[in-house]
């Protein structure tokens, strides 16, 4: 067994530098790597590019890095719930590359799987396809999209073991599995870290080969963005 466990978030983020490109899992605030984000704020790394479906809210998630003006460029599909984001984008401080959600996921997966690029119909005939190679297959038009290149992927899983194997819970899974192994170094944080051999190999969602460092997060706030309920009868 190859041990991937590191003692703390501090050790897990060793090597993080200004100007790097990071992938961060999560959909809205669901399944975001909360502990890695807090540490990135502490480290005060600057001019970073973040690949993440969303940009958090003003005071949580990637919003914390935005408040601190650490992000140079965001690559996302939807960035709606963040006033500071809007301010920085309109003032030109922040560069934004909006990418269709399925394309964003696949650009991660392509990097993980060793594909340099792929054709997708998403965005054909729109400004997203401007300047990109297009090609017809079976009478339909497709756009060539390159795989992402990133220095670190920060993902969050529910359970993990010291071999780096991961299990996700609920829709906190989202982009996290697609980002594992898609960057030079994948850092996984988990709610519960167990010894190798404890998890059922049949139930592993992401094998440890895609993960370089794993640690148990100190705490998880798991903030809910839109609390919608059916009233009790």
């Amino acid at each position: 067994m190859i041990n991937k466990e590191v003692a703390s978030v501090k050790v897990a983020l060793k090597g993080v530098k200004n100007g790097m490109t990071f992938m961060l899992g999560g959909f809205g605030l669901c399944g975001i790597p909360e502990n890695a984000i807090s540490e990135l704020v502490k480290l005060d790394v600057r001019d970073v590019t973040c690949i993440s479906n969303n940009a958090g809210v003003d005071d949580f998630g990637l919003g914390l890095l935005l408040q601190n003006k650490q992000i140079k460029k965001m690559i996302s599909s939807y960035v709606g719930e963040n006033d500071e984001f809007e301010r920085q984008m309109l003032s030109g401080e922040l560069e934004v590359e909006l990418t269709p959600q399925g394309t964003l996921a696949e650009k991660c997966r392509a990097a993980q799987a060793g594909f340099p690029a792929f054709y997708t119909p998403a965005g054909y005939g729109t400004e997203v396809a401007e300047g990109k190679e297009t090609r017809e297959f079976n009478g339909k038009m497709y756009v060539l999209e390159p795989a992402f290149k990133a220095d670190f992927a920060f993902v969050k899983a529910w359970k993990g073991d010291t071999a780096g194997n991961l299990i996700f819970k609920g829709t906190a899974r989202n982009f996290n599995p697609n980002m594992c192994g898609a960057a030079t170094i994948t850092v996984a944080e988990v709610e519960e870290l167990v010894p190798a051999g404890t998890l059922d190999p049949n139930q592993i969602h992401i094998p440890g080969i895609f993960v370089q460092r794993i640690f148990q997060g100190e705490k998880y706030e798991k903030r809910i963005e839109q609390r919608t309920v059916t009233p009790k009868l």
């Binding site: 996302s76 599909s77 939807y78 709606g80 984008m89 309109l90 959600q101 399925g102 997708t120 997203v128």
Partner: peptide, 10 residues
Amino acid sequence: MVKGMGGAMD
């Protein structure tokens, strides 16, 4: 303000 296309284009 452009919020993004989310999954609509796909």
